[in-house]
Simulated scan of single mutants.
Amino acid sequence: MRAVERIGLVVGVFAAVVCAIYWGWTGSTELGVEWVGVMTLLLASLLGFMLAWYTWMTRRRLETDPSDDPLGEVDEIQGEYGFFSPHSWQPLFLAGAASVCFLGLAVGWWLFIIGAVLGVPALIGWTFEYWKGQHAL
């Protein structure tokens, strides 16, 4: 966790310094400050600081993380990664509907509407698939 915390700090400081330089550089032109770039760099700086703050707060609450031990083994960080449905077809249907929606943005709104109509039942099915049937919770 310490490595991620340090990376967040480095990204935050770097983006803040570049933001200040960019603000001064574009402010010296006859067109004035280019605010889109300044705001983008400022938000990138805040994102880096947010990442560092979150990992710092998490590191304070948890025990020693195996990734912080230079002599630690990969096996020490094992644990539950989450719950995954090996039998579910709903993500495939949802991905197909999303593909049709994105294709509809290029082809026409009528195709986007068809993708949305196909996507709603797939999303509902994926959300509620463990409420009934063989794999109900």
Rank of each mutant, 00 (worst) to 15 (best):
S99H: 03
T40W: 13
G133M: 10
P86G: 05
G12K: 09
L94G: 12
K132S: 04
G82T: 11
G24H: 09
L43W: 13
L71N: 05
L118N: 08
R60Y: 01
E76F: 02
L42W: 10
I77Y: 00
V10N: 01
W109D: 09
W131I: 08
F49T: 05
G79C: 08
E63M: 02
M1G: 01
V74T: 11
W56S: 12
G79H: 02
E34A: 15
V100K: 01
R61S: 11
L47C: 07
F128P: 00
S99P: 00
A97M: 09
R6K: 06
M1A: 06
V36F: 13
D75W: 05
W23Q: 07
G24M: 15
D68M: 07
L92D: 04
A95W: 09
I113A: 15
A97H: 04
L31A: 14
S45I: 08
D65R: 10
G82H: 12
L43M: 13
F93P: 01
H135F: 15
P70V: 10
L118V: 06
P121I: 04
L62N: 04
D65W: 10
I114T: 10
V11D: 02
Q78G: 14
I21M: 12
G133Q: 12
A106F: 12
L118M: 14
F83V: 13
P91A: 00
V38Q: 08
S99G: 15
E30T: 11
L105D: 05
Y130E: 11
G108T: 01
A20C: 12
A97C: 09
W25Q: 06
E30R: 10
F93N: 02
F83E: 03
F49G: 10
V74I: 11
V38T: 08
G133F: 11
A116H: 01
D65V: 04
D68E: 15
A136V: 08
V120C: 02
S99E: 05
T55L: 06
S45F: 04
R61I: 10
M39F: 14
V10P: 01
A95P: 00
C101P: 05
L41V: 10
R2C: 00
D69P: 12
R59F: 01
E30G: 12
V10H: 03
L92S: 04
G27H: 09
W109C: 02
P91N: 00
S45V: 07
A98R: 03
V36S: 15
V74K: 06
Y22S: 12
W110A: 06
V17D: 01
W126Y: 14
F112I: 03
W89C: 02
L43D: 03
F112C: 12
I21K: 07
V4Y: 05
L105G: 15
P91C: 02
L103M: 10
